[in-house]
């Protein structure tokens, strides 16, 4: 992006040095994508999918001390059709997962998702029968926030990260996001499809070290446990 100080000649087609067209003073030369992304990133409308403790910290971010309005993301809309940033705040359980997916599908493009807190990102301390071990297994996520629950500052940081991602990725008409992210997601899908044996299970099965007790025997973890 460049702001012109004085009239200058626009470059011509196919690398010719002069086109004969002069831009007036004060003109900004940039690509359309950059302008659109700049507008998008400063007016993110979050859809707070707040289920548990993280939702309270999300409310704290919205209220006076932390004030998410400084980043243009204060317009929390509770209808998914009006939002472009989903913040999954809190653990998502078996009964809730279809609802989450449906709300995600209802949001219009372009849309982004933040997974807020340990529970939404990985299941956190709730490694139990009912809790989905990371919402990214079932919907695409752009930014993860660690913490249980994360401090409001880290939520603001995540919004800023999201903004830089929006600025870099996406095009005016396209909905695909950053090409390298798309690649990463494809790789992840492949890895998960391949991983039929207890990749996670071997790491996690020795809970007796931490005073765990498994009365019904150890359950299989990982893809192979899917019914």
């Amino acid at each position: 992006m460049a702001v012109t100080q004085k009239p200058f000649e626009l470059p011509g087609k196919s690398g010719k040095s002069s086109s004969g067209v002069f831009a007036p003073e004060g003109t900004i030369i940039t690509s359309l994508d950059a302008v659109v992304n700049w507008c998008r990133k400063n007016s993110l409308w979050p859809m707070p999918f707040a289920t548990a403790c993280c939702g309270i910290e999300l409310m704290a971010v919205g209220s006076s001390r932390f004030d998410i309005a400084r980043f243009g993301a204060e317009v929390m809309r509770f209808s998914p059709r009006q939002c472009d940033l989903m913040i999954v705040a809190g653990r998502v359980v078996m009964k809730m997962m279809p609802v989450l997916q449906r709300i995600w599908l209802q949001m219009p493009e372009p849309k982004y998702a933040i997974s807020m807190g340990a529970c939404a990102s990985s299941g956190g301390i709730f490694d139990t029968y009912a809790v989905v071990q990371g919402v990214d297994r079932f919907i695409p996520i752009d930014v993860y926030i660690p913490g249980c629950p994360p401090r409001p500052e880290s939520i603001l940081r995540a919004v800023m990260d999201m903004q830089s991602k929006v600025q870099k990725g996406g095009s005016t008409l396209g909905t695909q996001g950053l090409p390298e992210l798309r690649q990463m997601e494809e790789q992840l899908i492949q890895i998960r499809a391949r991983n039929t044996l207890p990749g996670i299970a071997t790491e996690r099965s020795d809970e007796s070290r931490f005073g765990y007790r498994l009365p019904g025997g150890e359950s299989l973890v990982g893809r192979s446990e899917t019914l």
Partner: peptide
């Protein structure tokens, strides 16, 4: 007590929604 803490795989029994689908 005879039901394991991590369940019997019910928690992973969902469709996966990718960026392409949505």
């Amino acid at each position: 007590k005879d039901y394991p803490l991590r369940g019997r795989g019910e928690r992973h029994n969902f469709e996966r929604v990718t960026r392409e689908d949505s």
